[in-house]
Nucleic acid binder design. Structure first.
Length: 835
RNA sequence: GGUCCAGUGGUGGAAUGGUAUACACGCAACACUUAAAAUGUUGUGCCCUCAAGGCAUGCGGGUUCGAGUCCCGCCUGGACCACCA
């Protein structure tokens, strides 16, 4: 008995695939194209983690199967290599990040290659390579020129540990997403990208793609579109207005007070008229001291303070209403101020109850009839008043006590109110998004330099050649011929104590000439965030060595969009949104052919350590795939990872279960010794062969890899038990198994005498006529309980079956002479009798 | 607090409304062996000495000839969002 030695065969076949360029995507192929994509890894110093192979193997199986189906598949790999861990390592050890990155990439390459993933390595990209980031800078300049990049002094989230500004999205639960440390607000001049201008396009685009539902709704929620109106409320005797945003303009008649966010500028402007200014200032100071975390944690008890002697006018009914400051209103959303309608909003209701503010219902629930006499409205209003004593009425209904809105349904009332507001010039229709602009500056070294200089002379004397220059006076883009703007070598990698990037300390680099006027200018010293390079890498794979363009339109037309993108749930909001934004922008300027970059998005679950914990270096529970490859081989590791559990769910790593898969592959191996050309292939084997072709193929397509492996095991076990194994059936087993365990299948395929690679085989077709069985086990239920089973042939008529079934002793015993009231036959499955 | 998802043997998990527990792991007995490992064979939800039978998919109801699957209410766990006006 020969022994299956993965060490001998795996290296051999990996070399064979590489030498024969079997996984090269062809730009000139007549076959239909398929672009499969995984999220390219960040090459950390720790090396690969067992979590990585899960998506890589899954998409590898799909890519290999699709090649066998006759597709020209592009399945590329690269490195998202800018980032903090490398920079922090550089700070600690003094080694240049570029050097560390190179070493890490070499290690990742070795590890990934040892898994036998069918990547097209000839298209490898690296975000830190100047030949790559030249085009990241180029795309940024296009955004700048089209007025989508702007500098803004805004309060940003500042991580005290990392000494770095964070995007809103990177602050999770009030703490830094990277280090978990505290975050404070700081004012800083930042480059921003106006993604909000694309909010509608990004929302619309979701209609033409096929994403898993969670990804779809997460994108929608993040963009957070809501339709409503902006309304101006006059402040009594000051000439100033409070502008609010509301989604319920129909409830304007029920607005009984107003609330400003503590950050709202009006508080300062009105200070002279506020009689209790000291209390108000104290409250605001308190609110500022609260972190975002506290402000959201203290959700139950709302707090606030009235601006005494400040009164606003409700423009609908000209009533005077009080104005409050409360931190349940957010400075960053809408206008930072609200009209409070406590009868019809949960938060306003809670606040009004606590502080004894007026609650005035103006919407009644729909009744059975849409027309109500006055007396009926009166009765219903009393009922509603009672209800509103306990809880607000927040659903739709019809208006009362609202003059020209009376009797209208909510939807109609909204429209009518907006028309009225516009006519009176006190308000207008408004669409509001939760999405914020993207903070694009980092005060860090290890990122793409921003290719702009600041020229004081140009700021004063030149109008600027593009929208970007006009909106950012003095900021001049580098000409394309000066790209890439390379990262200079520095001595120290720490951000400076003032929070500036280490580049700012390099006066030689910073002080330069203005490309516009030739005068003295200073370079931008901030760098781009991590997300920049990963926002367009899927475009570069298509034409990775092009030095004239980021990718040629011809090549882009051939490959875009990505047909199938699989990645982690942690990236379904930000990375997906940012890269969709860049792609859509490039589409709008005519640089790419597809409106949406990804046709289909799926997601894999995490691999957890034993006990359900996340694997992490600090817990010391990280499983290194190297050890698994060494001990059992890549084929076992790959197949096991697919077999562990449903692909989209989290699974616990269980080293004990690995041996089961290893035994399975060993049995496939030893079965080869009994393969015979003469062995007849019985009908039941042929049937199982065709059932396997059908099931395994279908299950790969829908990512049900665990059951696909189970079917392969069942088929393999059947063949294993035969004394002589029919050659055809065994060949089918190898072909079906080859996407999962490619090395061992190649070796066995060659041992059968084949001269070409199994990857060049066609995926077999099944014959539906051969799938069907001739007999089945009939189940007999009496009154819902299984009483008997026996084998019958498929051809039997219902009449004949009925006669047989009723004579079965067990059935007779239960019926006890009674005549069945119902006899139901579910063809090919069971009989259900009701006595 | 909201939204979504899940709860099935000792374990990971299978089941177009139609035989619950496929496929594995583990465990037990046996075979091979001086012995062990490896391998193979058989068994393995619970109650019952066997058989017959009964009971089992978080809990309680409902629909149905038939419910793990559909509906209603609850319990538990996870993921995401978190005062979005």
């Amino acid at each position: 008995m020969s022994i299956y030695s993965h060490k001998k065969i795996e290296k051999k076949w990996q070399k064979y695939w590489e030498e024969h360029e079997l996984f090269r995507a062809r730009d000139d192929s007549p076959k239909p194209k398929l672009y499969t994509l995984i999220e390219f890894p960040y090459p950390s110093g720790e090396g690969l983690h067992v979590g990585h192979p899960r998506p890589y193997t899954a998409m590898d199986i799909i890519s290999r199967k699709k090649r066998m189906d006759g597709y020209n598949v592009l399945y590329p790999i690269g490195w998202d290599a800018f980032g903090l861990p490398t920079e922090n390592y550089a700070i600690k050890t003094g080694q240049p990040p570029a050097k560390v990155t190179k070493k890490n990439i070499a290690n990742f390459t070795r590890q990934i290659k040892s898994l036998g993933i069918s990547f097209d390595w000839s298209r490898e990209v690296n975000t830190t390579d100047p030949a790559y980031y030249k085009w990241t800078q180029w795309i940024f300049l296009q955004l700048f020129k089209h007025g989508l990049a702007y500098k803004s002094k805004i309060a940003i989230n500042w991580c005290i540990n990392c000494k770095i500004g964070l995007a809103n999205e990177e602050v999770v639960g009030g703490v830094c997403e990277r280090c978990g440390g505290p975050v404070e607000k700081r004012l800083k001049d930042q480059w921003m990208l106006a993604i909000t201008k694309y909010a509608d396009k990004l929302l619309e685009g979701l209609k033409e793609v096929n994403y898993i539902p969670q990804a779809q709704t997460q994108q929608e929620n993040w963009i957070g579109r809501s339709e409503g109106a902006e309304i101006d409320f006059k402040i009594q005797g000051s000439g100033r207005n409070i502008r609010v945003f509301t989604t319920r303009p129909d409830t304007l008649f029920g607005a009984t007070y107003m609330v400003l966010a503590p950050e709202h500028e009006l508080v300062g402007q009105l200070s002279e008229s506020i009689s209790n200014l000291k209390d108000v200032e104290e409250y605001i100071a308190q609110a500022k001291r609260k972190s975002d975390l506290e402000r959201t944690e203290l959700q139950k008890e709302k707090t606030g303070v009235e601006l005494c002697d400040v009164r606003a006018i409700n423009p609908a009914n000209n009533e005077e209403i009080p104005v409050w400051v409360a931190d349940y209103v957010l400075g960053g959303y809408g206008t930072g101020a609200i009209m409070a309608v406590p009868a019809h909003d949960e938060r306003d209701w809670g606040f009004a109850k606590k502080y004894g503010l007026k609650i005035y219902p103006v919407v009644l629930p729909y009744g059975g009839s849409t027309t109500f006499g006055n007396s009926m409205v009166q009765v219903r209003k009393e009922v509603v008043n009672k209800i509103i004593d306990v809880q607000p009425f927040i659903r739709e209904g019809f208006n009362i006590e609202s003059k020209f809105l009376n009797g209208l349904k909510t939807a109609e009332a909204k429209i009518k109110m907006i028309q009225w507001l516009e006519k009176e010039k006190i308000g207008a229709c408004k669409i509001q998004y939760k999405l914020r602009d993207w903070v694009f500056s980092r005060q860090r070294y290890w990122g793409e330099p921003i290719p702009l200089v600041f020229c004081e002379a140009c700021a004063k004397f030149h109008k600027g050649e593009s929208v970007g220059e006009q909106t950012n006076p003095g900021w001049i883009p580098l000409p394309e011929s000066e790209l890439p703007l390379k990262l200079p070598a520095v001595k120290k990698y720490e951000p400076t104590d003032t929070g500036e990037s280490p580049l700012s300390a390099m006066s030689k680099w910073v002080n330069t000439k203005c490309p516009r006027c030739g005068g003295a200018a200073r370079r931008e010293t901030d760098t781009m965030p991590n997300w920049a390079g990963s926002s367009w890498y899927f475009l570069r794979y298509i034409d990775p060595r092009n030095d004239k363009e980021f990718a040629s339109m011809d090549a882009l037309k051939q490959w875009m969009p990505v047909d199938w993108y699989n990645g982690g749930m942690e990236h379904t909001v930000l990375h997906l949104l940012y890269s969709r934004f860049w792609n859509r922008f490039l589409f709008d300027i005519g640089a790419v052919p597809a409106r949406e970059p990804y046709k289909k998005r799926t997601s894999h679950g995490m691999i957890l350590a034993k006990g359900g914990e996340k694997m992490s270096k600090s817990k010391g529970n990280v499983v290194n795939p190297d050890d698994m490859v060494e001990q059992y081989g890549a084929d076992t590791l790959r197949t096991y990872i697919m077999f562990m559990g449903p692909f989209d769910q989290a699974v616990e790593w269980d080293p004990q279960s690995l041996v089961g898969v290893h035994r399975f592959l060993e049995r496939v191996w030893t079965t080869s010794e009994r393969v015979s050309n003469e062995a007849p292939c019985p009908k039941n084997i042929i049937r199982q062969e065709h059932q396997s072709i059908k099931k395994v193929g279908e299950e790969i397509e829908v990512m049900r890899f665990n059951t696909a492996v189970a079917h392969l095991m069942t088929f393999s076990n059947t063949l294993y038990k035969l004394e002589k194994v029919p050659r055809g059936a065994y060949k089918t087993l190898l072909v079906l198994l080859s996407p999962f365990a490619p090395h061992v299948c190649e070796e066995l395929w060659a041992m059968l005498g084949h001269k070409s690679s199994i990857t060049e085989e066609k995926w077999p077709a099944f014959d539906s006529a051969l799938l069907e069985e001739e007999t089945f086990e009939l189940v007999i239920q009496v009154n819902g309980k299984i009483r008997d089973k026996y084998i019958v042939s498929f051809g039997i008529t219902e009449e004949a079956l009925r006669a047989e079934v009723l004579k079965r002793p067990k059935v007779e015993a239960v019926l006890n002479g009674a005549k069945p009231q119902q006899f139901r036959y579910i063809s090919g499955k069971l009989v259900s009798i009701v006595a």
